[in-house]
């Protein structure tokens, strides 16, 4: 008996008791607080607070360097009668609608192509992501050069190589061609992300489903419509929410290629807010335009969220 206590006692004492500071850091509530503090603190100061501040600024006549007075709905009343603002709303909706349809149609097609057995698949999907990786402004400048009125390579191909047209296309000089050119550039930039995300969705679909459908004598269209589409719908909804939000609030492409021109016809709400707020100095009015984007964004998010929720309900899954 005596020997065992003599053996264990020094062993117990060898364990160093942590000092109070270490024990304090091991206290779970404190540790959670400390771990969350940097992220939550930074987001509170530079994300949540500006969000509220932006709404407040929209109701004031703040300019750069001068704290504004509360002016109520004056900014919004002014915008209501501003033809340019409504033009920007119209073009933002059109830009988002057409670009989203284009991105998802072409992106899904590309994803379906990549889902086949092809050589160099990894290399191919890496290359395809390039437009998404490179800084948008820099590829936008490349598009600006491609859309040049005198030295456009597209015009060169159509006029001098193929001979389909006799005059160079004026891509950015008038309202509608400029609008379509910007949408085309946006689709180009958006395809890779959509394609790679949907490819990830396609790869999770079990091949046995297709085999079963083949045994039942289905056509390719039926397999696409009744197996592929329902099963990638959840991923499609998430990717679409992201895509709609960031297309609607797009700034870089338009600012880099046309800066809202010609004659302000290609302003999106974001570029108009920037023009009024930063170079124009009228922060209050710019904030009012930016705040007017929020209802559209909430609507888009809810739309995709309910599409997603409906899928879960149909599949009879638990809430996971």
């Amino acid at each position: 008996m005596a020997t065992t206590t003599a053996d264990t006692a020094p062993w117990v004492h060898r364990r160093v008791e942590p000092n109070w500071l270490a024990r304090f850091f091991d206290w779970k509530p404190f540790l959670i607080f400390i771990c969350l503090l940097p992220a939550i603190g930074l987001l509170m100061v530079f994300l949540t607070y500006p969000l509220g501040l932006g709404v407040w600024l929209a109701f004031t006549d703040t300019t750069i360097g001068k704290t504004g007075q509360w002016v109520g709905l004056e900014n919004f009343q002014y915008l209501m009668e501003d033809r340019l603002f409504w033009q920007a709303v119209f073009y933002s909706v059109l830009y988002t609608g057409i670009a989203t349809i284009g991105k998802f149609a072409l992106g899904l097609w590309l994803a379906l192509l990549l889902n086949n057995h092809i050589p160099f698949k990894r290399l191919l999907s890496a290359i395809i992501l390039l437009p998404w990786i490179t800084p948008t402004v820099l590829s936008a400048i490349a598009f600006w050069w491609i859309y040049d009125p005198q030295f456009s390579i597209i015009s060169y191909v159509f006029v001098d190589v193929l001979g389909w047209r006799d005059r160079y296309i004026d891509f950015l000089g008038s309202t509608w061609p400029a609008r379509w050119s910007l949408i085309a550039a946006n689709i180009w930039r958006g395809i890779p992300f959509v394609a790679i995300s949907l490819l990830a969705g396609l790869q999770t679909i079990s091949p046995s489903l297709y085999e079963a459908a083949l045994l039942d004598g289905s056509t390719a269209w039926q397999r696409f419509r009744y197996i592929t589409v329902p099963l990638i719908m959840p991923i499609l909804a998430i990717v679409m929410t992201f895509s709609i939000i960031f297309t609607f609030t797009d700034f870089q492409l338009v600012y880099a290629i046309t800066r809202g021109g010609p004659v302000n016809s290609t302003h999106l709400m974001a570029t108009l807010a920037f023009q009024r707020g930063i170079p124009g100095g009228m922060l209050g009015e710019g904030a009012a335009i930016a705040v007017s984007m929020i209802p559209f964004l909430v609507f888009a998010t809810l739309f995709s969220y309910f599409a997603l929720a409906r899928r879960k309900w149909q599949q009879g899954e638990g809430n996971d």
């Binding site: 994300l47 932006g54 600024l57 703040t62 984007m293």
Partner: peptide
């Protein structure tokens, strides 16, 4: 934190510029 990602910079830059 995830939802914070959905707040686009285009509606944040004006108040942030003021800050």
């Amino acid at each position: 934190i995830y939802l914070a990602y959905l707040v686009p910079p285009s509606i944040q830059f004006i108040p942030l510029a003021w800050m």
